[in-house]
C-alpha cells in the first residue's frame, strides 16, 4: 500500500512540476494521473484484504464509493476553491494567475451579486405560498372525489416537464404579451397592458408562478403520501369528539403532518436555491436584475464573460451560504417540530 501511495504521489508531483513548467518531464494530459489513482485504489483494496482479513473484505464494500466520492466530489470542490482564488479569464493571454482573496473582495462589493442574493430571499419565501397551495391540493386529492386518480396524474404532469420547456411553453408562449392566451385573458379581464415580464414586481411574481407551477406537484405528492400514511383512527376519534373540519385539520392533521411538511419544504428550498433555467430562458435576469437569481448571474458571469476565477468564487461563496443556511434550517425545523409535538 505504501509503495502504491508513494507511486501515486510521485506521479502527481511529476505532473504538477511539468504543468507548472518547473520540469520538462511529464504527461501531455492528466489522464495518466487518473489511471494511477485507479491503480492506487485497487492496491489499497488488495492491501486491506491482505492486512486486515475479514475486516478488510468488509472495507471493500465501502472503498469504491469512498474513492469515487473523493474523485468526483471532494477533489473538484477543493479544486474549485483553488480556482476561486485565481484570476482566470479564458481569453486572457496570460492564462490563470493566483490572486489571493481579490475575487472575494470584489464579490463583497458587487451590487449584482447582492441583488441576486436579495432576490433569492424573496424566491425562498415564496416556498411558503407554494407549500400552502400544495397542501390544499394534497388534501383535495386525498378526499373522496371523483376521478381522483386522473387528477393525481394530471397534477403531477408539470413536474415531469423540463423547466426549459416550461419557460418556452408558458413563459414565452402562453404569457407572451401580444398573442399569448394568458395575456389575452388578462386583457379581457381589464388589464390594459398585460406585460408579465416588464415591471420588476410583476416579472418577479411571474417567475415565481412559473417555478411554482413546475414544483408544487413535487411538494403535493410528498404531502399526499404523508396524508395517506396517517392513521385514520385519529381522524375518526377527532370527529367522534365533535371536532369541526377546521379543528380536525388545524389541531390534528397539520401537527401530525409537520415532519413530512418540514421535509417537503426543505427539499423544495434546496431546489429553489438552484433556480436558474427559467430565468435564463425567459428574462435573462431582467428587467434591471429584478428576476436575477444567484445561479443565473453566475451563469452569465461564467458563460458570457468567461470569467472563470470570479465566477467560481461566486459559486463557492454561494455553496458556503447554502450549507450554513440549510444546516440552520434543519436545526430550526427539528426544534420547531419537537416544540409543536
Amino acid at each position: 500500500m505504501a509503495v502504491a501511495t508513494l507511486g501515486l504521489l510521485a506521479i502527481i508531483a511529476v505532473q504538477i512540476l511539468y504543468k507548472t513548467e518547473v520540469d520538462t518531464i511529464g504527461f501531455e494530459t492528466w489522464r495518466p494521473v487518473v489511471y494511477a489513482y485507479m491503480l492506487w485504489g485497487v492496491a489499497i483494496g488488495i492491501g486491506q484484504v491482505l492486512t486486515r482479513g475479514e475486516d478488510g473484505q468488509r472495507a471493500l464494500f465501502l472503498l469504491p464509493a469512498l474513492l469515487f466520492t473523493i474523485a468526483m466530489v471532494i477533489f473538484p470542490t477543493l479544486f474549485g476553491f483553488y480556482i476561486a482564488l485565481t484570476d482566470w479569464n479564458l481569453s486572457s493571454i496570460t492564462g490563470r494567475k493566483f490572486n489571493g482573496l481579490d475575487n472575494f473582495w470584489q464579490m463583497l462589493a458587487d451590487p449584482y451579486y447582492r441583488n441576486a442574493l436579495f432576490n433569492m430571499v424573496l424566491y425562498v419565501l415564496a416556498v411558503l405560498v407554494e407549500y400552502a397551495i400544495a397542501f390544499g391540493l394534497a388534501l383535495l386529492l386525498n378526499a373522496q372525489i371523483r376521478a381522483r386518480k386522473f387528477f393525481r396524474v394530471v397534477f403531477l404532469m408539470p413536474l415531469m416537464l423540463s423547466p426549459v420547456a416550461v419557460s418556452w411553453m408558458v413563459g414565452k408562449s402562453i404569457m407572451e404579451y401580444r398573442f399569448g392566451p394568458a395575456a389575452t385573458l388578462a386583457r379581457y379581464l381589464g388589464w390594459e397592458n398585460p406585460a408579465f415580464f416588464s415591471d420588476p414586481i410583476t416579472a418577479r411574481i411571474s417567475i415565481m408562478v412559473l417555478d411554482a407551477w413546475t414544483f408544487i406537484p413535487f411538494m403535493m405528492i410528498m404531502l399526499l403520501a404523508g396524508l395517506q400514511a396517517m392513521s385514520r383512527e385519529v381522524l375518526e376519534a377527532a370527529r367522534v369528539d365533535g371536532a369541526t373540519p377546521w379543528q380536525t385539520f388545524w389541531q390534528v392533521t397539520f401537527p401530525l403532518m409537520l415532519p413530512v411538511s418540514v421535509t417537503a419544504v426543505i427539499l423544495r428550498i434546496i431546489f429553489k436555491l438552484k433556480l436558474a433555467d427559467i430565468i435564463i430562458t425567459v428574462t435573462s435576469g431582467g428587467p434591471g436584475g429584478a428576476t436575477d437569481s444567484v445561479s443565473s448571474f453566475i451563469y452569465r458571469e461564467y458563460r458570457d464573460r468567461s470569467n472563470v476565477g470570479y465566477g467560481t468564487m461566486l459559486a463557492m461563496a454561494y455553496l458556503v451560504i447554502i450549507v450554513v443556511f440549510v444546516t440552520w434550517l434543519l436545526k430550526f425545523a427539528n426544534r420547531f417540530v419537537r416544540n409543536v409535538n
Partner: peptide
Amino acid sequence: EPADQINAD
C-alpha cells in the same frame, strides 16, 4: 414601444 419591450432581445 410595446409594453413588454424591455423584455425583448
